[in-house]
Design a protein around this nucleic acid. Structure first.
Length: 239
DNA sequence: CAATGATCATCG
DNA sequence: CGATGATCATTG
């Protein structure tokens, strides 16, 4: 389709689509977005595309929320409230290999996390995810990056067990006062890494002496090696 | 302030 | 050149 329409293009955001009423409706919208570019979808919804993601890191994810009618905003609930589905963009190379880790949620580091994995925010975020692949190589101009085919992921069996094992091990170390020794090297499929606006941000976490002390906030991330497995299975790729 | 959305920058 | 640690914008 042309990108230079003759009429005046909308300058600002339009009224966003309402939330999809059921999974079918969401899947239909999602597949309609597959194969389209960031520029196309932005234009269709009245958004301007920044030149680089640098100062706008969440742009693609937030554009997709609008396109698909996500209704959660910045609240702690699934992107598609009624469906219990979490939306995540997944930046990939043209080979299908993810270019980045995937942020899941802020980690609880003060010892108040549940003892049951399935009661944690981490599990609730991961229990039903609509992954939306998008070209993620910095060499491709943001406006030209295309979305791939989305796929729904519900971890179960051995996969869910791997997530839980990492969570259990890392949470155990947090409770044992070893948080400050945990690095991004730890965890097979999950990572516990810094998640902050800047180096001066602090959260209360369990220190080496067992007391709560201010320290850099942490977040849970999925390793790119793990999301690579998910991509490979979803598209039957040999990567 | 803490949640959402992530990518950037640097090092081994 | 991939992974880790650091960082940026916006919203309720």
């Amino acid at each position: 389709m042309g990108t230079e329409g003759a009429g005046a293009p909308p300058a600002g955001p339009q009224s966003p689509p309402s939330p999809p009423l059921d999974l079918d409706a969401l899947v239909r919208r999602a597949h309609a977005a597959a194969g389209r570019s960031v520029g196309e979808l932005a234009k269709a919804h009245g958004y301007r595309v920044p030149t680089r993601l640098g100062q706008h890191k969440g742009f693609i994810g937030q554009l997709l929320e609008v396109v698909l009618g996500a209704d959660a905003g910045s609240e702690s609930r699934p992107d598609f409230t009624g469906l219990g589905i979490e939306l995540k963009t997944l930046p990939i190379r043209d080979t299908g290999v993810p270019t980045q880790s995937t942020f899941v949620c802020k980690a609880t580091i003060d010892g108040t996390d549940s003892f049951e994995f399935k009661d944690t925010a981490l599990w609730h975020k991961l229990s039903c995810v609509l992954f939306f692949p998008v070209q993620g190589e910095a060499a491709i101009p943001l406006i030209a990056r295309r979305f791939g085919t989305p796929f729904l992921w519900r971890p179960e069996g051995a996969e869910a067990a791997r997530l839980e094992a990492d969570w259990r091990a890392l949470t155990g170390r947090i409770r044992a006062g070893e948080l400050e020794q945990i690095t991004g090297h730890d965890g097979e499929v999950l990572q516990l890494r810094p998640k902050a606006m800047n180096a001066s941000e602090r959260s209360l976490g369990i220190g080496a002496e067992g007391w709560l002390v201010p320290m850099p906030p942490r977040g849970w991330y999925l390793r790119p090696q793990f999301t690579r497995e998910l991509i490979a299975r979803a598209f039957d790729l040999d990567i």
